[in-house]
């Protein structure tokens, strides 16, 4: 007797090899140029609660070696965990400090950055990357960024963000080389705030 393979409700990337490569390059460019907003052209079929760019980055970077933390807003939609698990094979953790990636749907209520893995002084890479889904993301005004990857300074406007973001980011920079790296997503766009970036105002 033949059983039909389970068909996913969301089909993910059209072409898992090339779409993942394009998405990764956008994430890499964003990380190498902190604050610069990148645009993705190839977007996956994933639950609509996820920004398309966030879903693409998740499919490109997550797999069964990287435990994932979902905040309450993402965890409340069972399609999200199911489709991520189907396409990436990842497992989910409740404890933020055990996650390699944290997917945050409501950044205003994001757990304190220090509650995520920070890496150690010897191995600062053993740290978490936070995906923050925002409703506004552009280079018009807002935060003034300096540091590696930025010629002089760059502006980044993102909202909504945790009320204590400025202090959180300052503390994150203080912990350097330990700390977390942030990726911000909105629609098909994304930007990065790696731990090396200093944020002014």
């Amino acid at each position: 007797m033949r059983r039909a393979a389970p068909r996913p409700r969301f089909s993910g990337f059209d072409d898992p090899v090339f779409d993942a490569q394009m998405t990764f390059r956008a994430v890499m460019n964003a990380t190498a140029n902190p604050g610069r907003v990148e645009e993705l052209s190839l977007l996956p079929d994933m639950p609509s609660r996820l920004a398309a760019s966030l879903a693409a980055a998740a499919l490109a970077l997550i797999d069964h070696d990287t435990p994932v933390f979902l905040d309450r807003s993402f965890a409340s939609d069972p399609d999200i965990a199911a489709s991520l698990s189907f396409h990436t094979g990842c497992g989910f953790v409740e404890d933020p400090s055990c996650a390699a990636f944290a997917l945050i749907g409501h950044p205003a209520e994001c757990p304190a950055f220090s509650s995520f893995a920070q890496g150690t002084l010897e191995y600062p890479d053993r740290s978490a990357t936070l995906f923050l889904q925002v409703e506004k993301l552009d280079n018009e005004a807002g935060l003034r960024l300096r540091g590696p990857g930025i010629s002089d300074s760059r502006h980044l406007a993102a909202a909504p963000l945790p009320a204590s973001l400025a202090e959180e980011l300052a503390a994150n920079r203080e912990r350097f080389p330990q700390g977390v790296d942030l990726l911000l997503f909105n629609g098909s766009r994304l930007a990065a705030l790696p731990r090396s970036t200093r944020v002014e105002g």
Partner: peptide
């Protein structure tokens, strides 16, 4: 393997 290397590249860029 590519994903593993890509994740390492992102960490490397974040901690120059």
């Amino acid at each position: 393997t590519k994903r593993m290397i890509r994740r390492a590249i992102l960490k490397a860029i974040a901690v120059p």
